[in-house]
């Protein structure tokens, strides 16, 4: 076995995001055509003694959707939460390695995680609108909470339209955010995340708490959002990954086993474990 068995080196001519061994640093000189929007190099996450994410290296191109799949407990959520430094708040959590957005290292000294999170938005597993706020206030929350006053009506409308929610709520913007249905709440949370104008959108199983119809709407929305944003979505559903993503990364036990174009991962995986997972042999 090689010292880094989990990591795969892909042929450089492949147009897809690359995975490379940690030893080859710096492995990814920005490519001439399209540089990565998000680039992860030798990322490790520890919770106290538990090594939860092991030596992950990958890249995501702008305006693409990367789906992160794997059996539960494989570190999918832990991985994307490292992309906007949500682990900073967890006592005992430690992150090593580098995460670049537009070439800027998020974990470098001098980077304010608060400012960074405005560039890298996040949507969570369960819809979590602020219960004390109306629909309107929820969308504008990222602005008002940051102390940006003024009239946000235009931004609110714009974001609700982007989240395909405007027509459903335009007559009751002053109602409680929690008065909406689960699927609407999740789209409200997406609108809320869009209002701070992020470049990257992280989605942590955004449809896992929703019914199939609401899920379909979210997936449709992801297709549209891709025009503008770079999206990383964690999903436990392989069908969903197949439907929404351009590339797919398969995680197992904290390691990135394989990453490639979604179609290839599902039809012609290189790794045995990937094949076993996508064909339902385990997971």
């Amino acid at each position: 076995m090689s010292p880094a068995p989990a990591v795969q080196i892909m042929p450089p001519e492949k147009p897809v995001p690359m995975v490379s061994a940690p030893q080859q640093q710096p492995p990814l000189a920005p490519e001439p055509e399209t540089p990565f929007k998000v680039e992860v190099q030798d990322l490790n996450v520890y919770f106290r003694a538990n090594h939860a994410i092991r030596h992950v290296t990958l890249g995501v191109k702008p305006q693409t959707v990367l789906a992160v799949i794997g059996p539960s407990g494989c570190g999918k959520s832990t991985f994307i939460r490292a992309l906007n430094r949500m682990h900073d708040l967890v006592p005992g959590a430690r992150v090593e390695g580098r995460v670049f957005v537009d070439g800027e290292d998020l974990y470098a000294r001098g980077i304010d995680p608060v400012l960074l999170r405005r560039r890298v938005g996040m949507v969570f597993q369960r819809p979590n609108p602020f219960p004390t706020m109306s629909i309107y206030e929820n969308v504008a929350a990222g602005l008002t909470l940051n102390g940006i006053g003024g009239n946000h009506a235009e931004i609110v409308e714009h974001c609700l339209r982007q989240a395909a929610l405007w027509d459903e709520v335009k007559d009751r913007l002053r109602h409680a955010g929690t008065s909406l249905s689960g699927g609407q709440q999740q789209r409200l949370c997406i609108a809320r995340a869009l209002a701070v104008e992020p470049e990257v959108l992280l989605m942590d199983e955004p449809a896992s708490a929703l019914d199939p119809i609401a899920t379909a709407k979210i997936e449709e929305l992801i297709h549209e959002l891709k025009e503008k944003y770079t999206i990383v979505i964690v999903t436990h559903s392989m069908q969903q990954a197949a439907r929404v993503s351009d590339n797919t990364a398969f995680f197992y036990l904290g390691e990135l086993i394989e990453m490639g174009p979604t179609a290839q991962i599902f039809t012609n995986p290189r790794e045995r474990r990937t094949e076993d997972y996508v064909t339902g042999k385990f997971g």
Partner: peptide
């Protein structure tokens, strides 16, 4: 107050103290 609300606010790039006061304490108010 659910931790998810604090996370939602932090993920919007809201500072810790603003999150504590305007989301967490506000919700418990």
């Amino acid at each position: 107050v659910p931790a998810s609300l604090r996370e939602a606010s932090l993920a919007l790039g809201v500072a810790n103290w603003r999150t504590s006061i305007r989301v967490v304490i506000r919700t418990a108010m």
